[in-house]
Structures are given as structure tokens and as C-alpha cells.
């Protein structure tokens, strides 16, 4: 097995991108003390419009402001990359809309039920050496491998 068979499109940009993602999470922690998982914003933002007690919990209401700012930063960072480094060619995907919508629904439901996603359990949870997060990562990696390969077989 060679490096180019594992990484047919090169490996440097993956490592660089990963380090930058980590640097963003690290910067948030060093400057503000906050733990920057990304899925909570999808619950905390509903607290602006849904009165239900679940959404009005302090952990959502107290963090909903900065979480939206953090999300805006995400868009800003991608915009800088797009205009400054990618020539401003609009990104698009061949994944069908229904797959994005249905898959997205399970991503949102599952991440919030399980209290974390690829960044919450993956980056922050593993970064703080938490065993429950490692188990969560192994669980979602396993079901993701299974689903992606079954989908490739049946839907393609």
C-alpha cells in the first residue's frame, strides 16, 4: 500500500486544513474559554422562536448569541477561501437534494440526541480525552461506513 493509494488527491491540504480547524477551536478556547462544538447552534437557535421548555434551557439561551457569531465566522472563513484561494468558482454537489435533506435530518436529529457531531465528539471530545466521545465517534463512523456503502450499491 502506497501513500498515493491512500491519498489519491494528495495529503498536505488535508493535514493543513485539519490543523486550521483545530486552530479555530483552540483559539476560541484560549480567548474565551468556550468549547466550540458545531451542532448545538442548531438547537440553541430554535430557542429564539420556540417557547417549549426544552429549547428554553439555560445552556441554549445563554450560548445562543455566541454560537450564531461562531457560525457566521464559519461562513466568513469559507468566503475568504472561496474568493481568495479558489477563484470564486461556485461550489456544487452531485449528491441529490432528497439525499441531502433526508441525510441532513438524521444528522441534525442524531447529533442533538447524542449531544455532539464530528466536531463536538470528534474534535472537542477526543481533544479532551473523553471515553464517551470516543465511543460516539466509533459508533457514528461504523454506521456512516455502512450507510454510505449500502447507498452506493443501491442508489447509484
Amino acid at each position: 500500500m502506497t501513500l498515493s493509494s491512500l491519498f489519491p488527491h494528495g495529503w498536505q491540504h488535508y493535514l493543513l486544513g485539519g490543523v486550521l480547524i483545530g486552530a479555530g477551536t483552540a483559539l476560541l478556547f484560549v480567548l474565551t474559554g468556550r468549547i466550540g462544538g458545531m451542532s448545538t447552534v442548531f438547537s440553541s437557535s430554535w430557542s429564539f422562536v420556540v417557547r417549549r421548555a426544552f429549547f428554553q434551557q439555560a445552556r441554549f439561551v445563554d450560548s445562543r448569541g455566541w454560537r450564531l457569531v461562531y457560525a457566521a465566522g464559519l461562513i466568513l472563513g469559507a468566503l475568504v477561501w472561496w474568493l481568495g484561494f479558489a477563484g470564486g468558482v461556485r461550489e456544487a454537489t452531485a449528491v441529490p437534494a432528497w439525499q441531502l435533506l433526508v441525510g441532513g435530518f438524521f444528522v441534525g436529529y442524531g447529533a442533538r440526541l447524542g449531544n455532539g457531531c464530528t466536531s463536538g465528539h470528534g474534535i472537542c471530545g477526543l481533544g479532551s480525552l473523553q471515553l464517551p466521545s470516543l465511543l460516539a465517534v466509533l459508533t457514528f463512523m461504523a454506521t456512516a461506513f455502512l450507510t454510505a456503502n449500502l447507498a452506493a450499491r443501491w442508489l447509484a
Binding site: 493543513l16 486544513g17 485539519g18 490543523v19 486550521l20 480547524i21 483545530g22 486552530a23 479555530g24 477551536t25 483559539l27 476560541l28 480567548l31 474565551t32 466550540g36 458545531m38 457569531v69 461562531y70 457560525a71 457566521a72 465566522g73 464559519l74 461562513i75 466568513l76 472563513g77 469559507a78 468566503l79 475568504v80 477561501w81 472561496w82 484561494f85 479558489a86
Partner: peptide, 10 residues
């Protein structure tokens, strides 16, 4: 911090 994260994702 978010911008750095989003840049890295890109």
C-alpha cells in the same frame, strides 16, 4: 475562531 474553522474546512 469560527472563520479559522471555516477556512480550514474549506
Amino acid at each position: 475562531a469560527g472563520a479559522l474553522f471555516g477556512f480550514g474546512l474549506s
